[in-house]
């Protein structure tokens, strides 16, 4: 029978639910296996969440909510929960009409517009919703969100990488104004200044990661030092793009669930988990190019596709990582960097 001969590749759509074309080397067989298990988790979580939301519509910070979020926000509630826990909802309600007016203002700024337009065609060409031929095409929404944000936050303006983040926000919220306020929550409050012209927050966090690796996975830190590999080379994209195009879409969204609720230290958790899990593999590297290659490899494959298990790992694998430690390390490295300049 034809049906019996169907391989996972025949059954699983080439384009995922967000509109991304699956890459050539996509592991269909493992995905099918993983997804059949994940589907029951999703169902269970969906029931739990609807019960929680029935009790009260106001989600407040609590251990229970934190635990629920770590286990994943169901797609249908994701936009809503992100809006609430990030504070974007409050901002949007307190500033009615602001988005449209700042967008109109931004449209007067030729330099900002140019910078944004340059990257429109280069944002997710592998996503059907961002293709010029798509109807509706998200490129125009992306343009609006980025121009409005660049005008709203003049110090940051537009920085490459923000196009991918705003793109994901549009795919999840399907709403320009909400995407704008979520972008504001991320860039304005949740992340240190990764995107401002001096990129001091980004440089600081890469130093902090280096130090955390030294503490938690010393052999890898030693390898990096021996071959003089700068952390900026291997992890810039992880930080700037918040794992977009680095890890599978579903995994990225699960990471963002916790990022919106728990803040930027989640990025360190993810980075440390990858490095620790693949320590032996990284240590096989014999030279500089090997190391770069290994860091690309460790973000691919089954370990990161299995997003539910991966999310459990990020909270156990790296061990304790308190906000106090992060704050201290950030202060230390930031002042070090500032004196160097």
């Amino acid at each position: 029978m034809a049906q019996e001969n169907e391989t996972p590749k025949d059954k699983i759509p080439r384009i995922d639910v967000y509109g991304f074309e699956r890459p050539e080397e996509f592991d269909y067989a493992f995905y099918e296996d993983f997804y059949s298990r994940y589907l029951s988790i999703l169902t269970r979580r969906a029931i739990k969440w609807s019960k929680l939301l029935k009790k009260s519509t106001a989600i407040e910070k609590s251990l229970k909510v934190k635990r629920y979020i770590r286990k994943g926000i169901p797609n249908e509630h994701r936009c809503n929960i992100w809006m609430i826990v990030s504070g974007a909802q409050v901002q949007m309600e307190q500033n009615p009409g602001y988005y449209q007016s700042i967008l109109d203002e931004g449209n007067e700024d030729a330099k900002l517009k140019d910078a944004v337009i340059t990257d429109l065609n280069r944002t997710f060409p592998d996503n059907v919703q961002f293709r010029k031929t798509a109807n509706p095409c998200l490129q125009s929404n992306l343009y609006n969100v980025l121009v409005a944000y660049g005008q709203h936050n003049r110090r940051v303006g537009y920085c490459q990488g923000m196009n991918f983040i705003a793109g994901y926000l549009l795919l999840v919220t399907k709403d320009e104004e909400k995407s704008f306020w979520l972008l504001d929550a991320l860039i304005g409050r949740i992340l240190p200044d990764y995107y401002s012209p001096a990129m001091i927050g980004l440089k600081t966090d890469q130093e902090v990661l280096g130090e955390l690796v030294k503490m938690k996975v010393p052999a890898v830190a030693e390898l990096m030092e021996r071959h003089a590999v700068m952390w900026t080379l291997v992890v810039s994209r992880w930080f700037i793009c918040l794992f977009i195009d680095i890890l599978p879409v579903e995994t990225v969204l699960r990471i963002w669930d916790s990022l919106f609720y728990e803040g930027s230290k989640i990025i360190f958790r993810v980075a440390l988990t990858l490095i620790k899990q693949f320590q032996a593999f990284i240590l096989e590297a014999r030279n500089f190019p090997d190391i770069c290659e290994k860091f690309k490899e460790i973000t691919k494959g089954r370990y990161v596709m299995e997003c539910h298990v991966f999310m459990q790992k990020i909270f156990t694998e790296p061990g304790s990582l308190s906000n106090v430690t992060i704050t201290k390390l950030r202060e230390k490295h930031k002042s070090k960097l500032l004196t160097q300049e």
Binding site: T118, R122, P125, Q160, L233, R237, C292
Partner: peptide, 29 residues
């Protein structure tokens, strides 16, 4: 930005050309 640095390098190292290429964020090797 967009002068084609990544495309030139990819052509040289991989022998391929992509019509559209992501903006390079940071440094690649």
């Amino acid at each position: 930005s967009t002068v084609g640095k990544s495309c030139l390098i990819r052509r040289f190292t991989e022998g391929r050309f992509a019509q559209v290429s992501d903006p390079t964020v940071g440094v690649d090797f």
